[in-house]
Design a protein around this nucleic acid. Structure first.
Length: 378
RNA sequence: CCGGCGGUGGCGGAGCGGUCAAUCGCAUCAGACUGUAAAUCUGACGGGCUUGUCCCUGCGUAGGUUCGAAUCCUACCCGCCGGA
């Protein structure tokens, strides 16, 4: 079962309040989606994740295909049972790994550039370790270097075995230094793969198509029209978002203008705290991001007064809570001083405390935006 | 008191005649991270500035040998171990 209902639209911008219904329960949108790549929110158990107000998680097809393999998960009764997560789940298609293990690795870059860095990647160019063909992608396992082929059919098949509520079409996340010709050609492939995914799917899972097109307005619009016209249950907006973040908001607006109004839109892999109001205003319903969990393990805490790096020795003297306004169990029970000590002493509980707090903080942040939309204040 | 071993940067520890401000760890400091190759990675880490194929100081202390010493010799100081 899959349903999306928009209960309210902002009069000030394109933000919308909605309910996404799945077989594993409802999600109030806009919603943040924590990233559980290997069927785990690192450092937390599923009961703890529930306490962070998380409504849905996203796991990764590529990683789970390698370890432990979808057969194991299927034989355990699917991802929900396997990881003891009662609420909705998404799985990413492995499309991001086409970038992160390909050109992303070759050039040591993320999908958002800080500086303008031109179209270094030209049409026809291949990443060093991967081979991208019209059939799919020949990956090299980052674990042992062995070859792994995943194309649209394979991705869907794996995702069906995993059994998440929402699955994604296989795409290529294009790199931010790809030129127009590369991006255009890649887009064509992503579009072909989208149709193959739709035809391949036999399950009742909701399938989201992914819009690509890089930083190029005409390609983004072309992609949103093409993908938006296919019978997907919802849409992902993927890829790179330009040479700097300023384009991101514009780009999401170009795309959302073309996508069907009544279907959910998921922004893939975006969500610094400062990005969140912008992307919600641009009409995004759900979005996932590694930042709260990943940064938490690095010692960065997100608070109402900014980011704190708990590795810094100055916090040893600081007896305050991470965030005095936060009701989470970390802020209620532990001082910055103690958390700083744990990080400096390399105690593993440090990672858990910040992961918990950051997720709670992000989810609360988005919850506040939902309430504001409800009250007509956003 | 005798014998053995050793004293190198904040710490541990390489080097054992020239290419040494000195491999490498650790600690410290700074930076990065947006569909997680990520409890990770990068950089700095004697002092100085005009940040450079730059200058100064330097391998327990004081002398010596040598064109040249952290590296060899002598004395002394300190530490550890063994013997009286």
């Amino acid at each position: 079962m899959f349903e999306f209902k928009i209960s309210k639209k902002s009069k000030k911008n394109n933000a919308r309040l909605g309910i996404l219904k799945t077989a594993h329960g409802e999600i109030e949108t806009p919603a943040f989606v924590p990233v559980a790549t290997q069927a785990a929110i690192k450092t937390l158990d599923s009961q703890e994740v529930l306490k962070t107000k998380s409504q849905i998680l996203i796991c990764n097809t590529f990683h789970l295909h390698l370890k432990p393999g979808e057969k194991i998960i299927k034989s355990s009764g699917g991802l929900h049972k396997f990881m003891n997560w009662p609420k909705p789940l998404m799985t990413d298609s492995a499309g991001f790994q086409v970038f992160s293990l390909g050109f992303g690795r070759d050039f040591g870059m993320g999908k958002i550039l800080k500086e303008k860095n031109g179209g270094k990647i030209k049409s026809g160019q291949q990443p060093k370790l991967l081979k991208i063909t019209s059939e799919g992608v020949l990956f090299r396992s980052p674990n042992d270097g062995r070859k792994i082929f995943i194309g649209p059919k394979e991705s869907i098949k794996i995702q069906e075995s995993l059994g998440a509520d929402i699955i994604f079409a296989f795409d290529e996340c294009t790199p931010p230094i790809a030129n127009y010709a590369y991006t255009k050609k890649s887009l064509k492939l992503t579009h072909q793969w989208a149709q193959i995914c739709l035809n391949a799917k036999k399950s009742k899972q909701a399938l989201f198509g992914i819009v690509q097109g890089g930083k190029f307005k005409d390609l983004r619009i072309e992609s949103a029209k093409f993908i938006g016209n296919l019978p997907f249950d919802g849409f992902g907006i993927g890829g790179e978002f330009g040479d700097d973040k300023k384009i991101m908001e514009k780009m999401i607006n170009w795309v959302n203008k073309e996508l069907p109004e009544n279907k959910p839109r998921h922004l893939l892999g975006i969500g610094y705290l400062e990005d969140i109001p912008k992307i919600i205003k641009a009409g995004v319903d759900t979005f996932d991001c590694i930042v709260p969990t990943h940064y938490g393990r690095r010692g960065i805490a997100f608070t109402s007064s900014g980011e704190l790096d708990l590795n810094k020795s100055k916090f040893l003297q600081d007896k305050k809570a991470l965030d005095k306004k936060c009701p989470c169990f970390v802020c209620q029970n532990y001082s910055r001083s103690y958390l700083c000590h744990l990080f400096r002493a390399k105690e593993i509980s440090a990672l858990k405390f910040l992961t918990f707090h950051n997720l709670y903080f992000f989810n609360s942040f988005v919850e506040n935006i939902r309430n504001a939309i409800k009250k007509g204040k956003f």
